[in-house]
Computed example of a mutant assay.
Amino acid sequence: MNILGVLLFAFGIAVSIALHEFGHLLTAKAFGMKVTRYFIGFGPRLFSFRKGETEYGLKAIPAGGFCEITGMTALEDVHPDDRKRAFYNQKVWKRVVVLAAGSITHFILGFIILLILAMSLGLPNNKGLPVLQEVTPCVPVANVTDGSCPSGSPAPAKNAGLQPGDEIIAIAGQQTPTWPDMQRITRERTGPTEFKIIRDGQEKTVTVDVAKVTRTLTDGKGGKETKEIGAIGVLPKESFTYSPIAAIPAAVSFTGDMFVNTWKGLLRFPERIPAVVQAIGGGERDLDTPISVVGASRLGGDAAERGLWAFFVLMLAGLNFFVGVFNLLPLLPLDGGHIAVNLYERVRDWIRKLRGKPAGAPVNYMRLLPLTYVVIFLGGAITLLTVTADIVNPIRLQ
């Protein structure tokens, strides 16, 4: 099952790459540009076929793909018959759409994955909402470790009539926007306490006789302490499943959250690289360190082996959002770099027009080659580091 998970995840990555390039292909053809080749992979050609003016095919190394559009820069030698259809002769907005189409395809694919997840396995409770998954028969005492309910064990939530699906919004007049808030306030209480809940869209008030139990807790400094706390015997809801109609806004909201998290992850990316180097040297692998497609596929295998298919699917969605956002960074040779160049030309020519001057010459990509090589070198080095770390000291699901 682990191997199957790895293969399935790798296949998901390959499909994402194929659709990325297909986004470029589809928009370029829609605008009348000439697309000569569409290939998945690099290296030796495994097979190909021609349909119209475009050759479609598969290459031996499944590490990317490409869509070859005639006249990507003004430096390219284009046949006179094709000049009107060359990329560099199209309006700027058309060029930007074609260049951004790969990332947009990733975003659409990621949203569709989340939409399907919302209607099937459920979206994770990523905001920690205090919604009940289960009301336990009792609150076990300290010396009970098997989850059983000895005679006389308190059952506060059950006795108060709390039900799975209830959302606790306030305790003793204090708001509980998240599950940790609910836990913190509950632990400070004892005896009959007013709980405000939402059940089936209606607000209700119930009185829960909060029990006092002995628990060993983490003290926030890595140590542990034993103390008496309040408890009611409930477990949090870890995911939410939606109807087809309700799934749309839920997936939209979750997509927004993933965009925010992806951007935050990209900003923190450089500072996490030293941790990858330490992991290669034998240090403990931080769960927050960057991973390669190798590491992601291994995690996919772990998830499949443990039956965590919701996590598996969520990783695929997250991968698409990450690649989509990363590809829009204004750095050559990424699509975002080409977009930046085209937008620069448009703004520059607009300013020149206001000054009564003709449009400037196209940007000379040859002058940008040193910067492009630096980006390629850094990207290759980071890829090598993360792949090495994922082989010698991988992140694994516990």
Results as ranks from 00 to 15, higher is better:
91 K>I: 12
115 L>E: 06
119 M>S: 02
159 N>K: 06
169 I>V: 15
64 G>C: 12
66 F>P: 08
174 Q>G: 01
176 T>R: 14
77 D>L: 06
118 A>I: 09
147 G>Q: 08
146 D>N: 14
93 W>C: 09
132 L>G: 07
101 A>K: 12
108 I>N: 10
152 G>F: 10
71 G>T: 11
145 T>H: 02
127 K>A: 13
95 R>Y: 05
118 A>S: 05
82 D>A: 03
87 F>D: 06
185 I>C: 12
109 L>F: 13
122 G>C: 05
115 L>F: 15
78 V>I: 13
140 P>K: 11
86 A>R: 00
65 G>T: 05
88 Y>C: 11
177 P>L: 10
73 T>E: 11
185 I>T: 09
158 K>G: 01
172 A>H: 02
92 V>G: 09
76 E>R: 01
137 P>Y: 03
71 G>P: 11
172 A>S: 14
182 M>C: 12
108 I>L: 13
184 R>I: 08
157 A>I: 03
161 G>R: 03
106 H>R: 09
152 G>P: 06
141 V>C: 08
184 R>A: 06
187 R>W: 02
133 Q>R: 05
153 S>N: 03
76 E>S: 11
182 M>N: 04
103 S>G: 08
149 C>W: 02
100 A>Y: 01
148 S>K: 11
63 A>I: 12
159 N>H: 13
81 D>T: 05
85 R>C: 02
81 D>P: 06
92 V>C: 13
149 C>H: 09
83 R>E: 15
94 K>R: 15
132 L>A: 01
124 P>G: 07
99 L>K: 00
108 I>Y: 02
138 C>E: 07
95 R>W: 00
166 D>G: 10
180 P>H: 07
102 G>N: 08
121 L>R: 05
150 P>N: 06
178 T>A: 12
187 R>D: 03
179 W>V: 01
171 I>C: 12
160 A>G: 02
60 A>F: 10
72 M>Q: 10
108 I>F: 10
183 Q>H: 07
162 L>Y: 03
174 Q>W: 01
135 V>W: 09
181 D>N: 15
162 L>S: 09
101 A>W: 08
186 T>N: 10
